[in-house]
Simulated scan of single mutants.
Amino acid sequence: MSIKKILESTKSINDKEREIEAYYQSELITRSEASQLLDVTPQSLDRYLKQNKLVPFINKNRNILLKKTDVLAFKPEVDLMKKTFNK
């Protein structure tokens, strides 16, 4: 379920808060976790963020998080770049 659907639901505020927290726990990952998934350095990940190849999500503690599905969808492009430049 997406955040938009959670917010548009007719559930109570407390239920919505729990669902949003569960969404964060299941869908959002840290920069470090994203770097590991992509098998790149944190500096490379920062470059991808600056190039808008990945869209960051900043939580209330001002931590940068990324959607795991976005990172996994970007992985083939990263693998292709690695293959091209590591010849």
Score class of each variant (00 low, 15 high):
Gln43Tyr: 09
Tyr24Glu: 12
Asp39Cys: 01
Ala34Met: 04
Gln36Asp: 10
Glu33Arg: 02
Asn52Met: 12
Ser26His: 11
Ala73Phe: 07
Leu45Met: 09
Pro42Asp: 07
Met81Glu: 15
Lys16Glu: 13
Lys11His: 05
Pro76Asn: 05
Ile6Cys: 05
Glu17Pro: 08
Lys50Gln: 09
Thr41Asn: 10
Ser12Val: 11
Leu72Asn: 10
Phe57Pro: 08
Ser26Glu: 15
Pro76Ala: 13
Asp15Ala: 11
Leu38Trp: 00
Val55Arg: 15
Lys67Val: 02
Tyr23Lys: 11
Leu66Glu: 03
Leu80Asp: 13
Asp70Lys: 01
Val78Leu: 14
Arg31Gln: 04
Phe74Pro: 11
Asn14Trp: 08
Arg31Asp: 01
Ile13Trp: 02
Ile13Asp: 14
Arg62Ile: 02
Leu54His: 00
Lys60Met: 08
Lys4Asn: 09
Asn86Leu: 13
Pro56Glu: 07
Glu17Ser: 11
Ser9Tyr: 09
Ser2Trp: 05
Gln43Pro: 09
Thr30Leu: 03
Thr69Ser: 00
Ile29His: 09
Val71Asn: 04
Asp39Leu: 00
Val40Thr: 12
Thr69His: 02
Asn63Asp: 06
Ser44His: 12
Ala34Gly: 01
Phe85Asp: 07
Leu65Ala: 03
Ala73Gly: 00
Thr30Asn: 08
Leu28Asn: 07
Leu38Lys: 06
Met1Gly: 12
Thr41Pro: 07
Arg31Thr: 00
Leu72Trp: 08
Asn86Ser: 13
Asn61Val: 02
Pro56Trp: 09
Tyr48Asn: 15
Gln36Phe: 02
Asp46Ala: 02
Glu33Pro: 03
Ile3Tyr: 00
Tyr24Gly: 03
Ser2Ile: 01
Lys82Ala: 12
Lys4Met: 04
Ile58Asn: 07
Asn61Asp: 11
Ile29Pro: 09
Glu27Leu: 10
Pro76Arg: 11
Leu45Trp: 03
Met81Gly: 15
Asn61Trp: 07
Asp70Thr: 10
Leu49Glu: 06
Lys75Trp: 06
Arg47Lys: 05
Ala22Lys: 01
Ala34Ser: 05
Pro76Ile: 15
Arg18Trp: 04
Leu7Trp: 06
Leu49Lys: 04
Ile58Thr: 02
Met81His: 14
Pro76Cys: 15
Tyr24Ser: 04
Leu65Met: 02
Thr41Leu: 10
Glu8Ser: 07
Ile64Asn: 07
Leu49His: 06
Leu54Trp: 00
Arg31Glu: 07
Glu19Ile: 03
Glu17Met: 12
Glu27Phe: 04
Val78His: 08
Lys75His: 00
Glu19Arg: 04
Leu38Gln: 05
Lys53Tyr: 11
Leu28Ala: 09
Asp79His: 03
Leu54Phe: 02
Asp15Gly: 10
Val40Pro: 06
Glu17Gln: 13
Glu17Leu: 14
Ala34Gln: 06
Asn14Cys: 08
Phe57Ile: 12
Glu27Trp: 05
Lys87His: 06
Glu21Ala: 15
Ile58His: 01
Ile13Ala: 07
Ile29Thr: 08
Thr41Asp: 12
Glu17Trp: 12
Ser26Cys: 08
Val55Gly: 02
Ile13Phe: 13
Gln25Ser: 13
Lys68Gly: 10
Gln25His: 11
Ser2Asp: 09
Asp46Thr: 03
Lys68Asn: 06
